[in-house]
Design a protein around this nucleic acid. Sequence first.
DNA 1: CCCCTTTTAGAATGATCATTCTAGTGGCAA
DNA 2: TTGCCACTAGAATGATCATTCTAAAAGGGG
Lengths: 199, 199
Amino acid sequence: MANSTRDRIIDASSALFLQRGYAGTGLKLISDESDAPIGSLYHYFPGGKRELAAQTLRASGAAYQALVEAVFDAETDVVSGVRACFSAAAEALRLSDYADACPVATVALEVASSDEELRVVAAEVFESWLASATKRLRDGGVRPSAARELATTFVAALEGGFLLSRVARSVGPMRGIGEAIASLLEGELAPDGSRRFKR
Amino acid sequence: MANSTRDRIIDASSALFLQRGYAGTGLKLISDESDAPIGSLYHYFPGGKRELAAQTLRASGAAYQALVEAVFDAETDVVSGVRACFSAAAEALRLSDYADACPVATVALEVASSDEELRVVAAEVFESWLASATKRLRDGGVRPSAARELATTFVAALEGGFLLSRVARSVGPMRGIGEAIASLLEGELAPDGSRRFKR
DNA sequence: CCCCTTTTAGAATGATCATTCTAGTGGCAA
DNA sequence: TTGCCACTAGAATGATCATTCTAAAAGGGG
């Protein structure tokens, strides 16, 4: 059974780390936002801030993957699926005042060169996303040899869209990028293979 | 004439902010890395850490733009230009042990929701990049109505590539994404417009 | 040389940080 | 009830933070 206090801590951490970064988020702030005393933070995460961040990356990474999969799988083809993902991301940004974005990217960039343990956790999350996207593209008719790179491009474009849209406070970038990536996949799936993505 | 001490401070800040984030980089560390005493930091940047970060984002953003433009302009067509940019980014990552990446993204994500002043600075840098890329795509034959969105996709994919390659410590993502974006532009430029990116 | 401004130098300060610690409360099983 | 364990609660601690401050060195023009 899920522990409610632990979940509140993870939820608060996820939102705060995403919005303010790892170093920029104090445990006191997490304690306040989650209504859990500092003693509870160390009770559930004896490894301290590092372990809390690692677990938060894992949990919110898995949750975000499930969300994207649900949005994608609700469509009937990969082009619509990709379009729906960008559309949903844009909508989430707009509705949350540009706060609800990728729960991994901010911390990942921050720790990639300076905290090996957390870097590996982030790498595992992204690898899981890429595997999921690759499988879905393959199942949707994308040539197996091209699926992995197109999946990588999809994830990268989504991440870049979060960055540009959040900084600009506009859904324009995310929407435009979504159209372009959908178009890329359309070209790949066309019966005439002459203009296919080569690999 | 450029002030050498000031330049050293900016250079050190650029590298440190990119690798450790804004909150994660102490002024003491910048002082050590740049061989400039703390008094000098406040002499050249009276606004303190915030002003230093703002000026660093502006300076390193402009420098990176110039670098990308030079790589792009050395090629004869936009497809080769885009390919060269991703290739150069991958090479820079590999040679620097995955430290030499986008000097804006880490701080931008960190401050987008929590520091309006720095968010605006980052937004201006990205807007300048997008304007530059849009112009080059237009000049290279991309339909004007599609150029802005394709430029946005190019920048977003590059940023996503930095994220994925840095976290995975592999140039694979950056290279694959580069091929895919080059392929997207190839489709756009094809004489047969049937599979063009629509807008 | 003197004078004046720029720049260096880092100690002092008070705030905030992650972490530890002690003392508890609440609930459940025996 | 008694004992036990999970959890709460936040004060105490020492480190590190950004910033301010005083003082002097460096540099250049007269």
